[in-house]
C-alpha cells in the first residue's frame, strides 16, 4: 500500500565557507516509513534536517516532496505543505503555559486570515487540545509555565506542537536527547504510536541504538557529511562501516 515516494533528495550538498557539512545526499523515502538517522556528532544529521525543513539553504542539489521541488523554501512554507519538525533543543514558548503553547500551535494550523482574530480560547479547540495533551501525557502540567518543566516534558510538548500541524512528514531532531533514561521509551512509545495512527512519515535523529532498533523501518547512517549506509536496522547495525564510524 505505502509505496508512493514522498521525499527525495538528489546530490544534496551544503558547505559553510568552504567547509563541507553534507554532500552527495541521495535518499528516497516512502510514505509511512519510519526512518532513524544515526551518526556521530558533526556527521551532518542536523544539517540534513535543517535543509529539508528550510532552515538552511542547500549549496547545491535538490529536494523533492511529493514530486514537487521544494529546495530552499522558507520554514513556514515547509510547514504549510506538511513538512514539520521538532528540535534538538526544545523550541517552545518558555514564558507561557503548556496549554497556551499547544493552543497557539493548533490555532495557527487550523485557522487563517481573519479567523486568527477570533479569541484563542474557543471551546472546541480547547477540548481537542486537552485530548492531545492527554495523549502525550502532559495533561497534568497543562497550566504550568513551560520554563518550570523537565527536559522530557518540553520535548514532548515540542513534538506535540509539530504534530498538530498535521504533517505529512515529520523530522524529529534527537527527540530523546537530554531526557532521562526512564522517560526515553515513554516518549517514543507515545510519539510513534500517535504518528503511526495518522500514517505520518517520520525521520528521526537518534543516538540511542536500542531506540533505533525498536522503532524504525530503516536506518540512514551519516559520517562526515555523507550517508554511508541506508538499510533496515538489523542489517545496518551489523554493517562494518557503521560499526567502525558510528557505533565504534
Amino acid at each position: 500500500m505505502a509505496t508512493t515516494e514522498i521525499l527525495k533528495t538528489t546530490n544534496l550538498q551544503k558547505s559553510f565557507s568552504g567547509i563541507i557539512a553534507a554532500e552527495d545526499i541521495n535518499i528516497s523515502v516512502k510514505e509511512g516509513e519510519i526512518i532513524g538517522i544515526i551518526g556521530a556528532n558533526g556527521a551532518g544529521k542536523t544539517v540534513f534536517v535543517n535543509m529539508i525543513t528550510g532552515y538552511l539553504k542547500p549549496t547545491s542539489g535538490s529536494i523533492e516532496f511529493n514530486g514537487k521541488n521544494i529546495t530552499g523554501i522558507k520554514p513556514r512554507e515547509a510547514t504549510h505543505i506538511g513538512v514539520c519538525r521538532s528540535f534538538q533543543v526544545s523550541q517552545v514558548f518558555m514564558s507561557m503555559t503548556v496549554k497556551q503553547n499547544l493552543m497557539i500551535a493548533m490555532s495557527l494550523s487550523k485557522k487563517s486570515g481573519s479567523a486568527l482574530l477570533d479569541p484563542i480560547n474557543d471551546d472546541i479547540l480547547s477540548k481537542e487540545c486537552d485530548k492531545i495533551l492527554k495523549q502525550y501525557n502532559i495533561i497534568k502540567q497543562k497550566d504550568l509555565v513551560v520554563s518550570t518543566l523537565s527536559q522530557g516534558m518540553r520535548k514532548l510538548l515540542d513534538i506535540a506542537m509539530a504534530v498538530v500541524g498535521n504533517p505529512k512528514i515529520l523530522l524529529l531532531d534527537e527527540p530523546t536527547s537530554g531526557v532521562s533514561v526512564e522517560e526515553k521509551f515513554g516518549i517514543m512509545d507515545i510519539v510513534i504510536s500517535a504518528l503511526k495512527e495518522s500514517g505520518t512519515t517520520v525521520l528521526f535523529v537518534e543516538h540511542d541504538m536500542e531506540i533505533v532498533e525498536r522503532y524504525v523501518d530503516r536506518v540512514m547512517a551519516f559520517y562526515q557529511g555523507q550517508i554511508i549506509c541506508d538499510a533496515p536496522p538489523k542489517q545496518a547495525l551489523k554493517d562494518k562501516k557503521v560499526i567502525q564510524y558510528v557505533l565504534g
Binding site: 510547514t79 514558548f93 514564558s95 507561557m96 497557539i104 486568527l116 482574530l117 477570533d118 484563542i120 506542537m161
Partner: peptide, 26 residues
C-alpha cells in the same frame, strides 16, 4: 479583542521564540 485572539497571543510567542513561530507556519 486583539490581545485575546490567536494573533494577539503570537505577540508573547514571538518574544519567546521566533523560530518556532515560523515553524508553526506564521
Amino acid at each position: 479583542a486583539y490581545l485575546r485572539s490567536s494573533l494577539g497571543h503570537l505577540t508573547t510567542a514571538i518574544m519567546d521564540n521566533e523560530i518556532r513561530v515560523e515553524y508553526l507556519g506564521y
